[in-house]
Design a protein around this nucleic acid. Structure first.
Length: 462
RNA sequence: GGCCGAGUGGCAGAGUGGUCAUGCAGCGGAUUGCAAAUCCGUGGACGUCGGUUCGAUUCCGGCCUCGGCCUCCA
């Protein structure tokens, strides 16, 4: 029985999809005017795990993650660079796909773009006008009339009155109410624009998600996800738009992931304190970054620290060390209590840290039995890999992971390493310990760790 | 100011009304030519002040501190 924390009710609820056996899920993706940073990576990894896990429980999942490829920031950035906005967005979409793939994030089933859904967007705005939820302003903008939607503020826990007191009024405002938000923005000279019943213009930020999610998944769907900073106003506005236009409930379970923090502050573009995925991948393996993201429950803050990325490396080394040398062509061990513990953790609102704890205990069990019962160890190892697969980790060949670490600036090649190990083995046979230790120290200085066993010497990169 | 969330051992991070998180680091032991890896054992925590309770880190309230949203943001 899977339970999910629903931000709409602020409680964990038993998950039951609208259509038995099928889950429709929409996640707010990126606005593509820059490279992905770790916060974007967290969204992608978290909901990738959600989709993987739902599928593993037998659900057919339709996972939609949108791309915002037209908005103010994109226009400004394109102007700064003196290039067409779509050239800019194409480049960053490409980069995002590369980053996602590197982190083992499976592609969503659909990846709709705002600029490819102008007809749906315009139709929804027209519908909102017709149903009395929106109005055309004197300058050609179209605004949502927030006061026409009594439930406004429910998701974010705000009241219209509270919002009213904090609302700021810009000079030259053409809204009827400061809380109203733009569905359609009239084009200024030189801006990208599309034809509409209200003249040339472009969609507001929120309407694209309402239009695209409804088109892809229907008026009502199961899960809507995104970063916690989208709760208000973005998702609040989506509810107002979609329910205002369709007259039906919009989303059944709202999921928001917590922020990545650095020095106790939110990592964000506006604060400028972010690391891009690319920067981090220059120093850590993709699987290490992914593991690091999963060490925190998705709603909790994730504290960025080099020490913790290093910890991720140690942890993965422990897993892969246990898997190394085990047969992987056997059936997974069945009926293990640790497997049940893993699933209990995942079914409790995707508690990945607890799920990882179960995997560590499974790892200890593998190490414990591998001497006397290699067959059982192998079966447990296959199980460990399967569980890891649900999280998108431990899918590498152990040897590749263990030998593929950072070789350092003066990294030795595999062949050189093997040669040195053979010379050391010869010295060991001769009980020439000083020679053997000298070679081991030499390798250690090059970042190579040796591990002797009765079966011979293995090595890995530290 | 309004609303929301959080404060757990050296670090990270789960969880629970009364026996164990887990990983890394530390310490002791086994193993090893010595190491490494591994196994066994072990120390160390629940912001603060009250309340409820036989018993609270866990429930309730006050306080303190921190973070977030209220404006673009994953």
């Amino acid at each position: 029985m899977l339970s999910i924390y629903n931000d709409l009710t602020r409680a964990k609820e038993t998950f039951e999809p609208l259509k038995p056996g099928h889950v429709n899920m929409y996640v707010c993706g990126m606005t593509v005017y820059d490279l992905c940073h770790l916060g974007h990576a967290r969204v992608m990894v978290v909901f990738d795990v959600v989709a993987r896990y739902l599928r593993s429980r037998g659900y057919a999942v339709t996972y939609v993650r949108n791309i915002t490829d037209i908005d103010d920031k994109i226009i400004n950035r394109a102007n700064e660079r003196g290039e067409p906005f779509h050239a800019l967005t194409e480049r960053y979409i490409q980069a995002m796909h590369e980053d996602a793939a590197a982190l083992g994030v499976l592609p969503p089933d659909q990846e709709p773009r705002a600029t490819e859904h102008l007809p749906e967007i315009i139709a929804m705005v027209e519908r909102l006008i017709a149903r009395g939820h929106a109005y055309v302003a004197s300058n050609g903008d179209v605004y949502y009339d927030v006061r026409s939607f009594p439930d406004y503020g429910r998701l974010s826990g705000k009241s219209i009155e509270d919002l009213q007191s904090g609302a700021r009024v810009e000079p030259g405002e053409v809204k009827r109410d400061p809380l109203d938000f733009a569905l359609w923005k009239a084009a200024k000279p030189g801006e990208p624009a599309w034809d509409s019943p209200w003249g040339q213009g472009r969609p507001g930020w929120h309407i694209e998600c309402s239009a695209m999610s409804t088109k892809a998944l229907g008026d009502t769907f199961d899960i809507h996800g995104g970063g916690a900073d989208l709760t208000f106003p973005h998702h609040e506005n989506e509810i107002a738009q979609s329910e205002g236009a369709t007259g039906h409930p919009f989303v059944r379970y709202w999921m928001h992931n917590g922020f990545v923090r650095i020095n106790d502050e939110k990592m964000s573009k506006s604060l400028g304190n972010f690391f891009t995925v690319r920067e981090i991948l220059q120093r850590y393996l993709p699987e290490e970054v992914r593991y690091f993201i999963l060490t925190s429950q998705y709603r909790s803050p994730l504290h960025y620290a080099d020490e913790q990325l290093g910890n991720a490396r140690s942890a993965l080394t422990r897993f892969y060390t246990a898997l190394r040398g085990l047969r992987d062509d056997v059936p997974a061990a069945a009926g293990e209590t640790l497997e049940a513990r893993f699933h209990a953790a995942m079914e409790d609102d995707f508690n990945t840290p607890e799920a990882l704890a179960a995997m560590f205990e499974l790892t200890r069990e593998i190490n414990r039995v591998r001497g006397e019962d290699p067959a059982h160890a192998a079966a447990l190892g296959v199980l460990l890999c399967q569980l890891g697969g649900l999280l998108g980790i431990l899918q590498d060949d152990p040897e590749v992971y263990l030998r593929g670490g950072d070789g350092g600036p003066a990294g030795l090649g595999d062949a050189e390493i093997e040669t040195l190990i053979e010379r050391r083995s010869a010295a060991k046979r001769d009980k020439n310990w000083s020679e053997a230790d000298a070679i081991r120290d030499q390798l250690k200085d090059a970042g190579i760790v040796l591990e002797d066993s009765p079966a011979g010497t293995t090595w890995r990169r530290a």
